[in-house]
Computed example of a mutant assay.
Amino acid sequence: MASGRMEFHAQSIMQHANFSFVLPNDVEMAEVKEPKHYERPTKSLLLLHGLTGTDTDWLFGGVAQEMAIQYNLAVFMPTTGNSFYLDKGYVGGNFCQFVGEELPDYIHKVFGYFSDREDSLIAGLSMGGYGAIHTAFAYPDRFSQCIALSSAIHLDDIAKADASATNLMPVEMLTDIFGDLSKLMESDKNPKVQFEKLKREGKKIPRLYMAIGTEDSPELYNANTDFRDFLKKENADFFFEDGPGKHDWTFWNDYLNRGLSWMLG
Score class of each variant (00 low, 15 high):
Glu118Met: 15
Leu121Ser: 07
Leu125Cys: 12
Gly128Val: 01
Tyr130Gln: 12
Ala132Met: 02
Ala132Tyr: 02
Ile133His: 04
His134Thr: 10
Thr135Leu: 13
Phe137Ala: 10
Asp141Ala: 12
Phe143Val: 10
Ser144Val: 10
Gln145Met: 13
Cys146Leu: 05
Cys146Phe: 14
Ile147Gly: 01
Ile147Lys: 00
Ser151Lys: 05
Ile153Met: 07
Asp157Trp: 07
Ala159Val: 08
Lys160Glu: 15
Ala161Gln: 05
Ala163Gln: 13
Ala163Cys: 15
Thr166Pro: 08
Asn167Cys: 12
Met169Ala: 08
Pro170Leu: 05
Pro170Glu: 03
Val171Phe: 04
Val171Asn: 10
Glu172Lys: 12
Met173Ser: 13
Thr175Ala: 03
Asp176His: 12
Leu181Met: 05
Ser182Gly: 11
Lys183Asp: 15
Leu184Glu: 09
Leu184Met: 11
Glu186Pro: 09
Glu186Ser: 12
Lys189Ala: 06
Leu198Asn: 00
Lys199Trp: 05
Gly202His: 09
Lys204Ser: 15
Tyr209Thr: 04
Met210Cys: 06
Glu215Thr: 08
Ser217Arg: 09
Ser217Ile: 02
Pro218Cys: 09
Glu219Asn: 10
Leu220Met: 04
Tyr221Lys: 01
Asp226Glu: 15
Phe227Met: 15
Phe227Asp: 00
Leu231Phe: 11
Glu234Arg: 06
Ala236Cys: 11
Phe238Leu: 03
Glu241Cys: 07
Glu241Asn: 02
Asp242Arg: 04
Lys246Gln: 14
Lys246Tyr: 15
Trp249Gly: 08
